[in-house]
């Protein structure tokens, strides 16, 4: 009987492969049939994850404490947008569904995702809490599909295109924090990918 841990199935074409150990971080394993990337040979991935998620948590805090954008429509008439305030304002206007949906996909889910990943990498670095690390990774995986800060970030730019003729626009600290937070999220989930983190969990425990 083949050990399941030593097998990989290509997510694109479904071909079965035997896992080989990669010795250098520069190496990557690709599908023999369709050339799709299967996994990479990371070294010290847990430390990389720990530093990235820690930075992301700080950025997330900044993105929520400060205004994302400030506009000035002339004559000293100014307005600023803090994300949570905007959501609360929507709620007060009677838009329960949109405000709640926004609260989940822009605040709650991104925060819990990164926090779980932070705990996961901390547990792997410490070499303790095997089950805790697993639970954290499950939560991060399920919720990462419902993180929509990247789309929101592009929406801010689209909204600014609509009003730049009428107002002077000033991007705040929160805007740049959000940009870097989204960048880290993309790096973690689109480049490193969850399957690689699961492989790490399997190797370390």
């Amino acid at each position: 009987m083949e050990d399941l841990k030593n097998l990989v199935i290509c997510p694109r074409c479904g071909s079965l492969h035997k896992r080989i150990k990669l010795s250098s971080p520069k190496e990557s394993a690709r599908c023999w049939r369709c050339n799709k990337l299967l996994y990479r040979g990371y070294k010290g991935l847990e430390y990389q994850l720990l530093s990235f998620t820690f930075t992301a948590l700080i950025l997330f805090t900044l993105a929520n404490l400060f205004p994302i954008v400030e506009i000035d429509i002339g004559g000293g008439v100014k307005s600023r947008m803090v994300l949570l305030e905007a959501l609360l304002f929507l709620y007060k206007q009677g838009f329960l569904f949109i405000s709640l949906f926004g609260l989940l996909v822009l605040e709650v889910f991104p925060l819990i995702t990164i926090l779980s990943l932070f705990l996961f990498s901390l547990f792997v670095v410490l070499g303790t809490h095997k089950e805790g690390a697993k639970k954290a990774l499950i939560v991060a995986g399920r919720l990462s599909e419902w993180n929509m800060l990247d789309i929101f970030f592009i929406s801010i730019l689209v909204a600014m295109v609509k009003i730049y003729e009428y107002a002077y626009i000033d991007f705040g600290v929160a805007f740049w924090s959000m940009a870097f937070f989204v960048g880290i999220e993309i790096y973690l989930f689109r480049y490193i990918k969850l399957s690689q983190m699961w492989d790490l969990w399997e190797q370390k425990f």
Partner: peptide, 18 residues
Amino acid sequence: WSLIDVFVVMVLVGLIHF
């Protein structure tokens, strides 16, 4: 990504209440 329209409304509502 189709949610862009909804989020744009969210940003405009959050900013423009003079």
